[in-house]
Simulated scan of single mutants.
Amino acid sequence: MKTSKYRAVPLAVGLALAAAVAVPATAQPQTLPELRESATGRIVLTNLDDGRTLPVAAGDDIEVRLTGGRAGGLSWAWGEPAASDPAILPRTASNAMPNGNATAVFHVEGSGTVEITAAKRCVAPSGCPAAVNPWKITLNSAAPAPAEAGPPQTESQVRSQTSARG
């Protein structure tokens, strides 16, 4: 009896560890540094980021990767993501693929609040519901910090510059 008891303990521990590992990391909220893809330096957003509001800065690149697919016997496809204000957030690339996925890349050009939106629609030949599944992200881009004029000057430095001019 003792043998089976000791065999069950490692099995239970193994199952608990497997369950902990099986939970997808994307199900937990991500912070902005976690959204940055190290290979490209871009902020990468997916289906799971729907409804988020994120701070961004001028010069940031935002990549949107939306995954379509099949659900309930129907095929669902994303339209190309678009920005609410292309002056602040111009789209530099986009693609809607036959498999229902859509991607887009945006470059933050200015400051302000801008939304990226996309819609997922049924694309089956017949029997599609008229439902549209929207996706939206809000980005807040702050104005860049003003350039510093340099270290403060002492009174003697100001006098020497004034006397040199004239």
Rank of each mutant, 00 (worst) to 15 (best):
V13H: 04
T113D: 08
A118L: 13
P125G: 00
V108T: 12
A82M: 06
A131R: 10
M97H: 08
G73R: 14
G41C: 05
T154F: 13
G14P: 04
A119L: 07
Q157W: 06
D49C: 00
L32M: 11
W135G: 02
A87G: 12
A18V: 01
A131K: 01
P151Q: 12
M1Q: 08
A19P: 02
G110F: 04
N133D: 05
P98M: 13
C128R: 02
G68P: 04
P98Y: 03
Q30R: 13
V158R: 07
G41D: 03
A102K: 08
Q157P: 05
A25K: 09
E37F: 01
N133V: 13
K120R: 07
P86E: 12
E115L: 07
A118T: 15
T103K: 07
P146D: 14
R121K: 10
S156T: 08
V158G: 10
A77N: 10
V9K: 04
P125A: 11
I116S: 14
A104G: 14
L48R: 01
T138A: 05
E37C: 00
T138R: 04
E80V: 08
P29K: 08
A124I: 08
R91E: 15
G69C: 06
W76R: 02
E115T: 10
P152T: 02
K2A: 12
A82S: 05
A147W: 15
G72Y: 14
V114I: 09
V114W: 06
L11Q: 06
Q30N: 03
T67S: 09
L89V: 11
R7M: 14
A164Y: 11
G14F: 10
Q153I: 12
A25H: 02
A102I: 01
N99Y: 10
E115R: 14
G110L: 08
P152H: 09
P125Y: 00
T31C: 05
F106H: 05
V158F: 08
V132E: 10
P146S: 10
L15A: 09
T46V: 04
I116N: 11
P146Y: 06
A83C: 15
T92G: 10
A12L: 15
T67Y: 02
I137M: 07
S84V: 05
I88R: 06
V123F: 13
Q30A: 13
A18N: 02
A164G: 13
L11F: 06
A77I: 11
S156W: 04
